[in-house]
Design a protein around this nucleic acid. Structure first.
Lengths: 198, 198
DNA sequence: CGTCGTCTATGACAGCCGTCATAGTAGCGG
DNA sequence: CCGCTACTATGACGGCTGTCATAGACGACG
């Protein structure tokens, strides 16, 4: 499922992101990715002449775009948006997944950063770009809710930092406690300064 | 340096932690660890009959104890402790290191979680224990500053989450911006509810 | 039909990995 | 000197890795 339509190339990128966020970059083999994507191994070289590094980078970029789109979707589904409600939605995406599917996975961008930042410069850049792509729509949303532009960017960084850290802790503890905690504790801070009731 | 005294066993654990936080678990080979520790390869099996998994676990445990001790040290060096000042100190440890030594390293506990949580149950447990060992002194310190016990534990989790997330983002961006941002934005929240001037 | 570009198949390659078997040394108690 | 324990040395093992070379299938187009 979710691997059916679309061409083999896209499936490989998608599968790479899924496996990387579960096992890490080093532990994810090209053969695993190809098998997971049900794609022909013979095409690997054809689509990704830059080798594993290129495929990993594209998976990271994909994850960045995905996170950005999710933010837009959260906002669209929200009757009365507020900073804390946006953060709740971002956190809930993870608590829901962990509760329903177990704690097997984390964020692919974090995984790529942690085990490629020092060895593959291009992957590090892709991760930085992914974080930026994610930060942008969050900051913009905060701005539209009445937060001054400068502060909005900072709060977006705080939200993503706290979320990513809590994801790691939740995985280690196999408990959504950390995620629920950051959502609860950060909510009031995020809403402060935004006129209530409008 | 810092690898000189102490027996070979301890040096290997220490070197493992250092290499893991730089390259990740999978990318760190036993041979690399032994070489870095200037320890005899022949003793690996002797000291760590549980293989790489045992060595990694001990490195993670070591990191947890180290983080806890650092918290105690920060507090001891602080004339007038406050929650925000403690968090500042925790963050500054990383901004200082990044500014002086580059962005090559991250947190070993995060690295171990990200690429072993799904494949080595004992390592996942070690990571959870390390986070707990780190959380404990932070929560206790907050309590002593006047924060109610229940809330103190939550705020400690928030602090560690935000810090860990910002570390990853800083590494990806090769910029301490995210670290400085979380310190600045979280400070007032942490101090709220604590009587000023005492 | 022929040819070219796109895509796939297959297998080999060198290299590294963690593990393990075997042997040996050093020091100490008897 | 023996024997025992703690520690070290060395090399080999199978397995997996990313990369690459070679060849073939397929469809579009001239």
């Amino acid at each position: 499922m979710a691997v059916s339509r679309r061409g083999p190339r896209e499936r490989m990128v998608f599968s790479a992101a899924q496996l990387i966020r579960r096992d890490g970059v080093s532990a994810t083999g090209l053969r695993d990715i190809v098998a997971h994507a049900r794609a022909p191994r013979g095409s690997l070289r054809h689509y990704f002449p830059g080798g594993k590094e290129q495929l990993v980078n594209e998976a990271v970029e994909w994850a960045g775009r995905y996170a950005a789109k999710r933010v837009a979707r959260f906002l669209a589904e929200m009757p009365e948006p507020s900073p804390s409600r946006l953060f709740d939605a971002m956190v809930r995406q993870w608590t829901d997944e962990y509760r329903s599917a177990g704690f097997a996975t984390g964020c692919p961008v974090v995984a790529a950063t942690v085990d490629r930042a020092g060895s593959a410069e291009s992957t590090r850049e892709a991760a930085a770009a992914a974080f930026a792509a994610w930060n942008r729509p969050v900051a913009r949303a905060l701005t539209e809710m009445g937060v001054p532009a400068r502060r909005a960017a900072s709060l977006a960084t705080l939200m993503i930092s706290a979320l990513e850290g809590a994801i790691v802790i939740a995985r280690a503890e196999r408990d959504v406690r950390a995620l629920e905690t950051v959502a609860r504790e950060l909510g009031p801070l995020l809403d402060a300064g935004v006129a209530p009731g409008d």
